[in-house]
Amino acid sequence: MDHTKTLTNRADNIFGEAPHKGCENCEEELFFAMQDNEHRFSLGLRTVLHCLKLAELSGNIPPLPSKWWISVINRHGLELPALDKQHE
């Protein structure tokens, strides 16, 4: 199966920022191929991590340790909302 169309139909991250072609900091190293009832699309790992942080901040998932977030930020070059100091 050719996944080219799925990979080029990329969901933007939650801040509406599309990745910059050729930008080393914006290139994803992992994509998830997704499908709903009508579309096939891809979701980059950074988008998933942004969604996870939003879920954490909104109280929908338990807080993850700040040390873990710092590691994720450093590894993936993310800009996330400020870390809550009480989760350390």
Rank of each mutant, 00 (worst) to 15 (best):
H3M: 14
T6G: 02
T6Q: 05
T6P: 00
N9R: 09
N9K: 08
D12K: 03
D12L: 12
D12V: 09
I14E: 11
F15W: 14
F15Q: 13
G16E: 11
E17I: 10
P19F: 02
P19A: 00
G22S: 07
E24W: 05
N25C: 05
N25A: 08
C26F: 04
E27G: 10
E28L: 02
E28F: 03
L30A: 11
L30F: 12
F31W: 04
F31L: 06
D36E: 13
D36Q: 15
H39A: 10
F41S: 09
G44N: 01
R46V: 02
R46T: 02
V48A: 05
V48S: 01
H50R: 11
C51S: 14
L52I: 13
L52W: 02
L54H: 13
L57C: 14
G59I: 15
N60Q: 15
P62F: 10
P62M: 11
P62V: 09
P63H: 13
P65F: 05
S66F: 02
K67L: 09
K67E: 09
W68G: 05
W69T: 10
W69E: 06
W69L: 10
R75L: 10
R75I: 05
H76F: 14
G77Q: 06
G77A: 07
G77F: 01
L78F: 01
L83C: 07
L83S: 04
D84S: 10
Q86T: 12
E88P: 02
